[in-house]
């Protein structure tokens, strides 16, 4: 079974995204900020296929998390998708330059997540 991680400081968003991904057949783990997510990634990294990550979080934000992940060749094949309220085009560009593969602007629906996962080849 494919594995995914949801990184968001909102428990409700983690729950919603987690259930959505489980509905697509993913086994899902969660982290509440970038630092927690990095620790979890180092433990489970080789098994993870996909990370959905918020931008604004305490400890370490999503952009810095993406930069950290992309600086490690071990995770070069990991699909990273930002799911955030940040919608300025400069921020979208910054996320892509940092190494995010896709970008979803909140609010989202399960259909939006599904469409984006298909673009990433993470959903049939």
């Amino acid at each position: 079974m494919a594995k995914a991680m949801v990184v968001d400081d909102s428990r409700a968003i983690r729950l919603i995204l987690g259930r959505t991904l489980e509905g697509f057949g993913y086994q899902v783990c969660q982290a509440a900020n970038g630092r927690e997510a990095l620790a979890l990634l180092h433990r489970e990294g080789d098994d993870l296929n996909l990370v959905l990550v918020d931008w604004n979080m305490p400890e370490m934000n999503g952009l810095d998390f993406v930069k950290e992940v992309r600086s490690n060749p071990r995770y070069s094949k990991l699909a990273l998708m930002m799911v955030t309220t940040e919608t300025h085009i400069d921020q979208v560009c910054a996320a892509l330059e940092a190494g995010a593969n896709e970008y979803v602007m909140k609010p989202f629906t399960p259909e939006i997540i599904a469409d984006k996962l298909r673009l990433l080849g993470c959903l049939q």
Binding site: I89, V92, C93, Y103, M105, I112
Partner: peptide
């Protein structure tokens, strides 16, 4: 709308072919 560009549009196309 934001919801419409979220659906199915690769983000690389969004930043290349759209303005906010």
């Amino acid at each position: 709308s934001q919801l419409e560009v979220n659906r199915g549009l690769p983000v690389h196309y969004l930043i290349k072919y759209f303005t906010r």
